[in-house]
Design a binder for these strands. Structure first.
Lengths: 138, 138
DNA sequence: CTTGACCCTATAGCGACTATAGGGTGTATA
DNA sequence: TATACACCCTATAGTCGCTATAGGGTCAAG
């Protein structure tokens, strides 16, 4: 591969993204199709590397691929208002916040259930009992 | 459906589980195959309802289907030691704990990113910038 | 000239459902 | 009796974000 072009393996190493994942991003319209070498290898420009880095960072922050797609589109129009960016980021933060709360109340219940078990056999197990509070017909 | 047998719709309403999900549980070995009516409708016993309730409670607590399967097997052998139950429950709690921590640090970053944005256009947007820190080639 | 690292496409699998297509059953009412 | 309608059936494909596999082609070094 020439000095100015990068192979898919180069992008993979540079961003810590699996090769298959890069092809997956291309197929799903997140990464534009690069040129090809004579041997039909993908030949990326530095711009592709930037874009892939962007995608990875956004994914690391938990944005969905749809959100990443939207962020990429917005970031391409540099004169556009960034209000839409803010909306996406805040929606995602709210979602994360909600998940944290859900998991915290879940953990509270799990803690209670686990702590209540001081038994030896399943017939007396408080964990099992908490799952099947009605009389055990099965 | 006779007075002692329940239709799939009955189980659905009683447990708040979609009909398709009940069939899915059956196909995946969580719920035993019920008898059938003359018209080939599933005819459930009360024991099925108990089992489905168990599954739903465990799922609500975030146990995976594999974990639920294991818990069901354990709960069927009522004379068995409940140590294995404890192991599954604690493993799941630890997992939930880890997820909470991950999401909390994620939220911290998202908060910082969102708070840092006081701009009007994408070119100056701190959110976009935090995603693409290198010079924008694309 | 062969080895081995790398690349290609196409397709199937994961988990836990959900949705759809294309039918059959059972009951209440006109 | 006809028909409308709620309910049930099976089989298959779709969701999300990859990951893995099969079955090949390319390219540089030894």
């Amino acid at each position: 591969m020439s000095s100015t072009h990068l192979s898919i393996g180069d992008l993979s190493r540079a961003t810590g993204t699996k090769v298959e994942t890069i092809r997956f991003y291309e197929k799903n319209g997140l990464l534009p199709q690069p040129g090809r070498t004579q041997g039909n290898y993908r030949a990326y420009e530095p711009a592709h590397l930037n874009r892939l880095s962007f995608i990875r960072r956004a994914r690391d922050l938990g944005f969905s691929l749809d959100q990443v797609r939207a962020l990429l589109t917005l970031s391409d129009d540099r004169s556009h208002s960034c209000a839409a960016v803010d909306v996406i980021a805040r929606a995602h933060r709210d979602e994360v916040e909600r998940k944290i709360k859900d998991l915290q109340s879940l953990k509270t219940v799990l803690d209670q259930v686990i702590e209540s078990c001081h038994c030896n056999i399943v017939a007396d197990c408080a964990i099992i009992e908490s799952l099947a509070p009605a009389s055990q017909g099965s």
